[in-house]
């Protein structure tokens, strides 16, 4: 994320706006692309049996079950990781961790982890790894269908899905672009974290920082949030907020951040308008 490459600071004043816009669309398209790509990898690999592990945020130790605190460093923050056994024999018992092995040979999509201080013996396990040796987390799985639409194309999609958008049609008359994101309600804490990290932050920084969004033909954005179940986004979000204490710092931070960002968009005269689907209709999200 070297901003200097996109900026010529000597001509900061004049060239600020085009640079931001280019940077923004590039970032968002690549984010959407990589999320889709990751979704495919996970979809293919998770057909095989896998197990969730919990990794200490502080020292990196792995545990097969979620514990209260890390036995190595007594830290309380854990992230859920996914580990796929390399050779699945019939007798494989996920609890028997002696079968697990850590590789360091780089493979195309599935890479094996090199250095991990662990209380699990390093045998026979294949770990899915994304860029920079980060293990796949629940957050990667909990967000999908990140798409960029023109509003008319989006309308066509809604019509064919028989979703009634007449209630909101007047409200979004002057918007031209739609960003669609689908969230997993079963892992909603992780989904919120990923939404904050990958989507809302880029929108926040790049859509709201310049006054030319007030030009006649400016591209204001609709953020269309879907869930994989019947539950609407705001219902799931309020449920999550009400038991906030159960979550790690990062999720709490993400919730606060999203509250702030949504409020900010509202104050900047709905530069980004978040909407959700509810019973074959659409509704504006008010947090």
């Amino acid at each position: 994320m070297q901003l200097d490459e996109y900026f010529d600071f000597d001509e900061f004043d004049e060239k600020l706006i085009p640079a931001w816009e280019l940077y923004f669309s590039g970032q968002l398209i690549s984010t959407a692309d990589s999320l889709r790509h990751r979704g495919n990898i996970l979809h293919n690999n998770l057909k095989r049996s896998f197990q969730k592990f919990f990794q200490c945020d502080n020292c990196g130790s792995l545990f097969s079950e979620n514990t209260e605190f890390c036995t190595q460093c007594s830290n309380k923050d854990f992230n859920c990781r996914i580990i796929v056994p390399h050779q699945i024999d019939k007798n494989f018992d996920p609890k028997n961790l002696n079968h697990i092995k850590f590789y360091n040979k780089p493979d195309s999509d599935i890479q094996l982890l090199t250095e991990i201080t662990s209380n699990i013996s390093k045998k026979d396990v294949l770990v899915l790894v994304r860029d920079e040796n980060q293990i796949y987390t629940r957050g990667d799985m909990s967000i999908s269908d990140v798409c960029f639409f023109d509003k008319d194309v989006w309308y066509n999609g809604l019509r064919s899905a028989k979703i009634d958008f007449t209630s909101i049609e007047k409200r979004i008359m002057f918007y031209s672009t739609v960003i669609q994101v689908k969230l997993d309600t079963n892992n909603f804490d992780a989904a919120i974290f990923t939404l904050d990290e990958y989507i809302t932050r880029y929108l926040q920084v790049n859509m709201c920082s310049d006054e030319n969004t007030y030009d006649v033909n400016s591209n204001n954005v609709i953020l269309f949030l879907l869930t994989n179940t019947d539950k609407s986004f705001s219902d799931a979000y309020f449920d999550l907020q009400s038991n906030q204490n159960k979550f790690i710092d990062k999720v709490e931070y993400a919730i606060k951040n999203i509250n702030n960002i949504f409020r900010n968009w509202k104050e900047l005269n709905d530069i980004v308008l978040p909407i959700e689907q509810i019973n074959h209709g659409l509704r504006e999200i008010k947090l």
């Binding site: 007047k170 409200r171 979004i172 008359m173 002057f174 006054e211 007030y214 030009d215 006649v216 033909n217 005269n269 709905d270």
Partner: peptide, 21 residues
């Protein structure tokens, strides 16, 4: 969509129609 700007050096006042209402 209507848009009016009043500019004095680097101070600006902008008015814009946001939606129909």
């Amino acid at each position: 969509i209507y848009n009016i700007k009043l500019i004095n050096k680097k101070s600006k006042c902008i008015i814009k129609q946001l939606s129909e209402d």
